[in-house]
Amino acid sequence: MIAVCQFGGSNCDRDAVLALRHLGFEAERVWHADGLPAEADGVVLPGGFSYGDYLRAGAMAARAPILREVCDAAERGVPVLGICNGAQVGTETGLVPGAFTTNASARFRCEHVHLRVENAETPWTAGFEPGEVLTLPIAHGEGRFEIAEDTLADLDDDRVLFRYCNEAGAVTDAANPNGSVDGVAGLLGEHEHTAVLMPHPERATLPDLGGTDGRTILRGFASEAEG
């Protein structure tokens, strides 16, 4: 069962459950204070505005006791996917390096973007070809990926899953919706079964939502969880 952790202010938890069930996987919402169920073999940290983005987006949820359990589960090999606010929680927890902060434009961006697959040899991206361009929606005000220069240099390039790009697959400033360093839109944590993404695969899974490229990511994740 994939546990979708719900915090006060989460608002993509239902979407994630619906998308995973649509693909035929078992998924349940889990209220953070109830703790992580022992049978959770995958974890989604969903999008939204946990704790009203107090202090910094994701800062409060990252210190909630359930995140300790999520980190322990990740250590045991349980796949963890942070989406949008969940990605912010992931960096705040230290599950993945760097930080997501205020968009360079200082504006909330809600639109579809193109993403280039940078590493197709991960559970998340195995269904894509390297360099393939996909389309996913974004909806965030704090999605600018920042990382210390030396950490960026240390970050094995294999850990970048997706970069913002134009329709032709070129990573350009114009195609970067938030000013993220190197156009990073999603990356792996220390383990390849831990990943965060600012774009929303669960909003591109059911038909009639303007694309289904998110399915491949969620299938890869859920198969890893069930495997």
Binding site: R56, P97, A99
Partner: peptide, 8 residues
Amino acid sequence: RLLANPTI
């Protein structure tokens, strides 16, 4: 531990 994010 909380008030600052050492990355930024």
